[in-house]
Nucleic acid binder design. Structure first.
Lengths: 219, 219
DNA sequence: TTATTTTGTTAGATGACACTAACAATATAC
DNA sequence: GTATATTGTTAGTGTCATCTAACAAAATAA
């Protein structure tokens, strides 16, 4: 079964929003895709009838297993493309996203399998995001959200969920990178922000918005 | 100005048909694209209003200079992609066409310029077809059609126009390849077929259909 | 608990690109 | 030079993915 470029984009968006926020509703999806809500509703009905999405009026959206697989395969194609553009074609990381958004819709399993092979079957992309295998299986080590950890935890930064330029810049400004080992010194009940220490930083504050998007391994 | 995938395909088809046959009409295009004539007529009107095609009812179709450039840039992207897939990714020539048909519509000048660079700025693809430069200029050496040559001419096979599998197989069966040097021994007035000799072949007959699609340099 | 805001749905329209059916022009054959 | 075949156009539909306007449900605030 093939799916239109449009359908693929909706499925991918649902997957990525549900990784970021847990719940996904029509409004989120609408904003994320810059597509008006009625259009989203209509597409959800269509994807529901194709058994890719569980949709009931006024209920949050969920991918079916089938939908999850399709979405994961698109993500696979996207991440392999980004890797390929950087590693094999000499592009900078900031340049590759828009190209990968287009190439991820190319229909040719062999094309992406070849990239995979040439790249040596990578498991994670440079943001720490997992690359699904050719069956759509994410070897997603179910990392914890930093925001779900508690005072005293020592954790290793293993992945970031959002890869917007602004977010990466913020991490950079604070000297945070994949592999950083943080100790949680305090969690503010008021705004969900965390005070952490790592390396030369004895006391840095990270807002809840940031902590929500950081994935860690508790050590 | 960007053009839809659909528009690009029409423009490319007109360019390729006019290289093959000289004249292009709605019926040819319709067959070539497997799209019904009324749809083609409608698109011609649209492309005319965008000044990409010269269209007048019942007249043959012609690309404007602008249309020619757009079409040539699509061809450039197609041929570079084919080269890249073969040279840099290890695909066989028979596998690459369908993938290239999709990738040729990717919108990213840098992506294709990078391929061009990695390939060492090739001028011809392995079929002998010229690769337009980044401005859409074909360094088309205006090769002669084999079918326009006359008895006694000695010519070098420099390019083939049609790249269907059946056509390439025929050339292969006859031991013809790029660079073959042919001597024209006779031209049959009746059916336009030619009797030629080359290498170990002292007398081979090529039908007009074949001769029309072979480009040569007279030496 | 009622009022207001936010979120979601239905209904109806639009543009792009395809189709079929019917008719018109051009080209070819007799 | 009329008849026939081929080619091309017009008119009217359909589907996909989008929109706006209007209304409805759910969540939040007063």
């Amino acid at each position: 079964m093939v799916h239109s470029l449009t359908e693929e984009n909706y499925l991918k968006a649902i997957l990525s929003l549900s990784n970021e926020n847990g719940q996904v509703n029509v409004n989120h999806l609408s904003k994320h895709l810059s597509i008006k809500m009625p259009t989203v509703t209509a597409m959800m009905k269509k994807l529901h009838s194709k058994k890719l999405v569980q949709y009931e009026a006024y209920k949050p959206l969920k991918l079916t297993d089938k939908g999850k697989k399709v979405a994961a395969l698109v993500v696979r194609k996207h991440r392999l493309t980004e890797m390929f553009l950087v590693e094999k074609m000499g592009f900078g990381w900031e340049e590759v996203h828009d190209i990968a958004e287009q190439i991820e819709h190319i229909q040719s399993t062999e094309f992406f399998n070849k990239m995979d092979e040439l790249l040596g079957f990578p498991k994670l992309d440079p943001h720490g995001s997992p690359i699904p295998d050719k069956h759509g299986k994410m070897v997603w080590k179910e990392y914890a959200k930093l925001s779900d950890c508690k005072k005293g935890d020592r954790v290793k930064l293993t992945a970031v969920i959002n890869t917007s330029e602004d977010f990466l810049k913020l991490l950079n400004n604070k000297g945070l990178h994949l592999g950083s080992v943080l100790t949680i010194k305090a969690v503010e009940a008021f705004d969900g922000s965390m005070v952490v220490s790592y390396e030369k930083h004895t006391s840095e504050t990270l807002s809840q918005v940031v902590c929500d998007r950081i994935r860690v391994e508790i050590i």
